[in-house]
Amino acid sequence: MEIIRYAELRAEPWRNKGGVTRELASHPKAASSQDGAWDWRVSIAEVSKAGQFSAFPGMDRVLTVVEGELLLLTVDGAEHPLEKYRPFRFSGDADAAGALPTGDIRDLNVITRNGAFKGYTSIIELSKKRAHPVFEGQFGILLQGQATVSPGNAGGGDSSGEGEATEAVSVPGEPETLGRYDAVVGSDSATPEILGRGFLAVVSIDRVT
């Protein structure tokens, strides 16, 4: 079982100085989280001022506001008010810019290369009575509240075979407490299970066949 600790991730400033990005995972690993030399990437960005978004030609994007009230996203001239916990998909080729009518926001970004992978983001409410499993090719990211994660059965689990997690640490069989924005790497062996109260983002990276 692997956990990516958000507090240990390096913040990379945007080229336009409008925010910073922390990469949770990418495949294959790149020297920089912003150079686009990967087929998929999962990251969290802090947006502190309005401005143009970087283009990712040949990519598909899913953006979800996870902190703050509203991001006013303009994509190819069309305005899209993005509220918290409402994933929005758009093309990485698009001319995109963001405005912050209610102040700073933090967003979860899933970017995948067209024809190779497809990314999905779902927001679920956690339960203390029913554990939520995180399977191979998935990441479970704690957005709000308190939660613990433990392997579904005895023995160690394998991380997602398609990705190389950043700052991943091995965890024994006992439940481990998750901090805000910590990510659990999914596995089909000793599948991690998350219990708690709050909201979880489940990111799925599917290979296109």
Rank of each mutant, 00 (worst) to 15 (best):
A99S: 01
D107M: 12
G119W: 01
A116F: 13
I123F: 05
G155W: 14
G77V: 00
F135H: 13
M59I: 10
A147G: 13
G68M: 07
L143P: 10
S127F: 05
G140I: 00
L73H: 01
K84R: 15
A78F: 03
F53G: 02
R89C: 10
L100H: 14
S54Q: 02
T102Y: 11
D158L: 14
G157M: 04
S127G: 04
P57Q: 03
G92N: 03
P101Y: 10
G77S: 04
I141R: 00
R113W: 07
G68Y: 11
A99H: 00
A147K: 07
R113C: 08
E83I: 07
V62S: 03
F56I: 01
E79G: 04
K84S: 07
A97Q: 02
G68F: 04
A147H: 10
L100V: 13
G157C: 13
A99E: 03
S122V: 06
V62P: 02
G103D: 08
F117I: 06
I123T: 06
G98M: 03
G140D: 05
T102P: 06
Q144I: 09
S160Q: 06
G115V: 12
A154W: 12
D60F: 00
N153T: 15
G137C: 03
D60E: 09
R86F: 08
L100F: 08
G157E: 07
D60Y: 05
P81V: 09
P151S: 12
I141W: 09
Q144H: 15
S150A: 15
G119C: 06
S160C: 07
I124Q: 12
G155I: 08
R130N: 01
A116E: 12
G145C: 14
G98A: 12
H80V: 04
V110F: 10
E83R: 14
A131T: 00
A147F: 08
N114K: 15
T121H: 03
M59H: 02
Y120K: 11
F56T: 05
A78W: 05
R113H: 09
I105R: 04
D95A: 09
G152R: 07
I123G: 05
N114I: 15
R130V: 11
S150W: 07
P57A: 10
D76G: 02
